[in-house]
Design a protein around this nucleic acid. Structure first.
Lengths: 120, 120
DNA sequence: CCGTATCCTCAAAGATACTG
DNA sequence: CAGTATCTTTGAGGATACGG
């Protein structure tokens, strides 16, 4: 394997310790709705209503709080147009694209193997 | 980007829909303690006590249930030696290694960027 | 159309004690 | 050493109604 947990920890002591920044970011991007929203945005810019439809099962409350967290983290950009009716567009930032470039291979593998994994 | 959410969904319709197998596996491997246990095992075989020390902050209850889930999913192997005192060793299966080969680059990136992300 | 505000529930997770 | 059993807590998340 290219990199181990030990190597990660030794490259930056304290990383992945209880309550450290890495754990916080981990909770944001690996959260149930966080991953799904980020994945939906790999399709490109999307409006609120699109996201609500694409991210199957998400409540308005969770979509709102998930998006706010990801915007605060600088992973998602929010652009609101002063029109009537309102239009708001979400997209990945450059940083978000970097993250998803690393996450999508993992998601593809999970998609390919999920059935096998649960067939036990 | 190499692969998008749309491509994933079109390659296997229903994947990532609410309640589908992919969501379940996602919840297992992306869970707070799931990732950390899996990461700890990228260092190689580890005993229960080692895992409890390495995975900072995990309770015995959560370590037990997390390990049981991962063993059931065929991602982690459990070998118990009939000795006194008992010795039990956990390690990644071939399938677990495949998963972590795709997850560690993501973890490395998060480790590198966590401070920046939260400094806003 | 795009959210926010409020209330409420229940299951995940912690604490503690105990055992093969 | 490697867990299990039991009880309690808490906050993530759902439902609903309303506002800009």
């Amino acid at each position: 394997m290219a990199v181990s947990f030990r190597q990660l920890r030794e490259s930056a002591p304290g990383v992945f310790g209880d309550g450290c920044p890495t754990r916080t970011v981990l909770d944001h991007v690996m959260s149930k709705w966080g991953v799904l929203v980020l994945m939906a945005l790999t399709d490109g810019t999307a409006r609120w209503g699109e996201l609500k439809r694409t991210v199957d099962g998400v409540s308005e409350k969770m979509l709102a709080s998930t998006l706010r967290t990801l915007v605060d983290d600088g992973l998602v950009a929010r652009v609101s147009y002063p029109e009537v009716p309102p239009r708001v567009e979400y997209s990945l930032t450059a940083r978000g694209e970097e993250l998803m470039a690393r996450m999508m291979p993992l998601m593809a593998w999970i998609g390919d193997n999920a059935d096998d994994i649960l067939a036990r």
